[in-house]
Amino acid sequence: MNRTFAIAGREFRASLSSPLGYVFMLLFVIVGLSLFFFVEGFFSSGEASTRGFFKWIPFLMLLVGPALTMRFWADERKTGTYEVLATLPLTATQLVWGKFLAAFWMLGLALLLTIGVPIVASNYGELDWGPVVGGYTGALLLGSAYLAIGLVCSALVQEQLLALFLGWAVCGLTLLPDLAFWDSLFQNAQWLLELRSIGFASRFDSIERGVLDLRDLLFYLSATGFFLYLNVALLRWRRFTT
C-alpha cells in the first residue's frame, strides 16, 4: 500500500513538472470553459444551470484521459527506467495502481480547475447543486475508465504521442454507439438502444441530470477495473517477451 502511494506520488509530481502534462490540463480547462461560456451561450441565456458544461464531459474526458496517461508506461520503457521498476520486488498490481492513482489525482485537479463553472452559474440565480455533484462524480468515474484505457495504450507503445492517438481512438470507440447520427439512420431500432447501453456517454446523461443510478456507477467502475486488469496482465506478459 505504502509503495503504491510512493509510485503514485512520484508519478503525480512528474506529471505536474512535465510541460506536456500542463498543456493538456490547461487545454482541458480552456476548452471546457469555452464550450460552456461561449459555445453553449451561458451569458446570453443567463440561466443558473451547469448543463451546458456537463453535457460535454464525455468529450472532455476523452480528450484529457489518454493525455494524462500517455507518458506513464511509454516513457518508462523508452528511457529504460522500466527495467529498474520491474526488477524491484513489486507486483504488477502495485505498479498499475500506483500509476492509476497518480492519473486519478491529475484528473481530480483538472476538474477542480473548472469549479468556476458552477460558481459563476450560482451567481445567476438559485443553482441546483444536485446535478453539479452528480456531474463531477460521474466525470471522475467516466474519466477513470478513460484513464485506465489510456494506461493500457501507453503500455502498448514506446512513444507518448502514439499512446495518445491510440488512447483517443479506443476511447472514441466507447462513444460510438452514442452518436445521434445512428438514430436518423436506423429509426430507433431496438438493437441500437441495447447497444447504446454500453455507450459511455448515454450512461452519463442521467448522471448529469443528477440521477445517480447504481448501475451506471457500476458500469464505469467495472470498465475501469477491466482495463486496469488488462494493464496488469500486459505487464506480466512483458516478462515473457522482450
Binding site: 512520484r10 512528474a14 513538472s17 512535465s18 528511457t79 529504460g80 527506467t81 527495467e83 529498474v84 526488477t87
Partner: peptide, 9 residues
C-alpha cells in the same frame, strides 16, 4: 541496468 536509466526529472 545498462547505461543506468534514471528518472531525469
Amino acid at each position: 541496468p545498462e547505461s543506468a536509466p534514471l528518472y531525469k526529472d
